[in-house]
Amino acid sequence: MMIESLLFYAFAALAILSALLLVHIRNIARALFLLFIVLFSMAGLYLFALADFIAITQILVYVGGVLILLIFAFMLSNKELLDDLQSSSKRFISLPNWQAIILALAFLSLMIYSYISWAQDMPEWISQAEAKGRMILPTDNNIKILGFKFMTQYVLPFEVISVFLMMALIGAAHLSRKESNK
């Protein structure tokens, strides 16, 4: 148990610290690499929630897809983008936008407060699930069950989301076409 807690805290700390650093770095390239670390840490955290398939999917799709996309988009962009960023900060660490900080902190405090007061008073289905042993166990074969679920219970959303993905990509491709001669 000790190792587990320690690892969990390590992954959580990594994720949070990377995210904090991510929003402070001026250099977008470095920020995107920090994002990479964040995503990996999140995947680790998924594992602790006994969602191994989600973790792998996260790494495959998010890191391998989205992050790469962002990096390529950033790297292949114009020089003006880079200039635009450099010129915006004169000092090394400029005062961050204080309204946003206050808002974020307010949100955070609100949510943590509600979680902690909620923790005293868990909803029924969770306590029943714990009581009747309908929790996911580490020994479960998640992939197999997920596969079954996808093909039987959730086949409609599955199909819909694949159509949706196709639409999105087509749309994106269309949006970003080069209009050479009008």
Binding site: I16, L22, P96, A104, L108, I112
Partner: peptide, 14 residues
């Protein structure tokens, strides 16, 4: 919640 708020900050302040 922490990750969410950090993301929120990034949306509002960047």
């Amino acid at each position: 919640a922490c990750i969410f708020c950090i993301g929120l900050y990034a949306v509002l302040a960047k």
